[in-house]
Design a protein around this nucleic acid. Structure first.
Lengths: 348, 348
DNA sequence: CGCTTTGAGAAAAACGTTTTTTTGATTTTA
DNA sequence: TAAAATCAAAAAAACGTTTTTCTCAAAGCG
């Protein structure tokens, strides 16, 4: 199967130069005469020589690899982020190593250790345990240990000290959602939120209450429902709960698209429809919003831009640059078909 | 930021043994006395020492890394495969490196080169260019070059000689789909297929014609529609075309779930409904089938089992074992709510 | 014209492991 | 009881690069 590996020395020998000259040529180092450069390149081409990245990494102390932890790449939110980051990393000359943790602390810890062994030069944490507050002790320790050895970039959450945080503007996203629904005439607005212990939930919740207050709208206690799972199951049950109230809301904001779609299924099962009976808003604007009828209005970040920021932060931190002041990534409202205008007389 | 790296020699020194003994201890090599083993482990624990995987790989000529190429991990079919493979690989002591190629030959080639530089020990090709026939010349050459250096496992397609192929039983899947619809009384069955040049399309097409023939059912030429893109756009337009026929089909089989969902949207837009007016079947049984109403009947493989087979093939090939005879992965019909029984009097 | 600078490139050291070889002590065997 | 065999572990070589150091020749300078 495997033919004899050809090394930089073999190239050097055939080109009648030293190994270091070959190394320099491959690195586009300036101080090598065109004539020799040519001679080397010819041999490199002839054998299709490609330097061993392991040796390169070991010798130069640069693996050119960035690790990424996410709960589940089957979730379109994370796959979009990973996909965008992979491209950004490739463009920057880095490789991105993705690991699915299923939000299990033991897995996250195991993968962090593995990535450190593999000499990852930076670590990007997406969701998962990173979103929790308070953090499991052993997890926090491991992140701390990572942060001591390499720059840790946290996408959204800030698990421990010494991590670069690239926060999403959940607060403003929620503000936009509430204002949009209010502008359509809704006053009875509900929020299907995730687990309270999650950072994102807390920010959105705060924004929900404060924006409602600013609009002089009353928040019914029963309209704020905690959803146990972030998927359509959770949304389904949460919505069922809302619809069983004596006076249900007219609009529902869900913590993410999956939950919103679950809510929509509940609405359909009860014989109601969107947006006729309930207006619906999701978060993340995944392509799922285009798969349901009517298309789901949703808020999201610009995935490409976010990826560039994440990878940019990682790469500049690797090069030892000072961390830039935190820039918060804005969310944009993507208005589609799941919300309708409601008139005062319809109320009650 | 980075504290002084601690090596196997530092451990050896503090434990008063040689570096090779430390190496043996970490490898659970038998021939080292319990007393010394203990002493070494104590120091390893104390410093939380973790051996450098780059050095390990270079020295042992085993990177313990498997590369994987897929067109787009945002596609739930591929994310499911990757996720399952990552777990299987981790369990087998390997790391899985995923690269998105967007089915662009140049990207696939670039990534193959990169993976070879990184000393990947095996390469798994999922979809993308691998599904095409005929293959772009330069692509085929690169795969050939890979196959010369490491075992290449192809998930479905067989791009070139010397690749292990783990084929999916597309033929039987289509057979099941057609038989199921026929058993519900359908005779006017359509097939929204992908590009003709793709292997999968060809197999499904053959199965479609042959099964229809076996059932003595006529295939209307206009019922077999080529869809340009594998997404809901494609399905939408294909279905529109089918509905504009003077005598439209009563059941539609789509090449995958996305396409089927696009078809469903077209059906809804025309004021029809599923399964009342059209029965619908997709392929891959992604979680998308549970997000639409009614839940989409679909055919799929067992992702976990498929992943075990793929990784198993890669790992055993790495260890130099003889390739096992090709086992074809079966597809299972997941009956949900998108097909209904049709009665002879309804016909026409 | 002899001296220091400069620059190209060879040689050697380093990176942190595994693997092979060697060593020396202990046990077995004749 | 001396020679052979076994064993644990130290020492050394190897993995394939980059990086540092060294060498030598040509160029610059007073």
């Amino acid at each position: 199967m495997t033919q004899k590996k050809i090394t930089i020395y073999d190239i050097a020998k055939e080109a009648q130069v030293s190994a270091s000259t070959v190394s320099r040529v491959l690195d586009n180092h300036p101080s090598v005469k065109p004539e020799k450069r040519e001679r080397v390149m010819k041999v490199v081409k002839k054998y299709q020589f490609r330097p061993n990245a392991l040796a390169k990494g070991l010798s130069s102390a640069h693996s050119r690899m960035i690790g990424m932890l996410c709960p589940d790449v089957c979730n379109p939110f994370f796959s979009s982020i990973f996909s965008a980051c992979e491209q950004a990393a490739f463009a920057a000359g880095y490789t991105l190593m993705l690991n699915n943790t299923f939000a299990q602390p033991e897995k996250e810890i195991a993968y962090m250790h593995k990535l450190m062994e593999q000499q990852a030069e930076s670590l990007i944490l997406c969701g998962g345990v990173a979103d929790w507050r308070p953090l499991p002790e052993e997890y926090a320790n491991t992140v701390r240990q990572c942060a001591q050895n390499l720059p840790v970039v946290s996408a959204g959450a800030l698990p421990v000290e010494r991590c670069y945080q690239i926060p999403l503007d959940h607060y403003d996203g929620m503000r936009q959602a509430v204002n949009y629904l209010a502008s359509l005439g809704h006053t009875r607005i509900a929020f299907l939120h995730g687990l309270r212990c999650i950072l994102q939930t807390q920010e959105k919740m705060r924004a929900f209450y404060e924006t409602m207050a600013a609009l002089k709208l009353h928040v019914h206690k029963e309209y704020v429902v905690e959803v146990m799972t972030f998927d359509e199951q959770g949304g389904y049950h949460g919505m069922m709960q809302l619809m069983s109230l004596p006076k249900p809301p007219t609009a529902v904001i869900a913590i993410n698209d999956m939950t919103a779609i679950g809510a929509q299924q509940a609405i359909l099962h009860k014989g109601y429809s969107v947006p006729r009976d309930f207006s619906l808003i999701g978060f993340d604007n995944t392509y799922l919003t285009y798969l349901v009828q009517p298309h789901l209005t949703s808020l999201s970040l610009d995935y490409q831009a976010y990826a560039r920021t994440l990878i940019g932060a990682a790469v500049s931190a690797i090069s030892g640059e000072q961390p830039k002041p935190l820039e918060v990534i804005p969310l944009t409202l993507h208005v589609k078909e799941s919300c309708r205008r409601i008139f005062p007389l319809e109320e009650k």
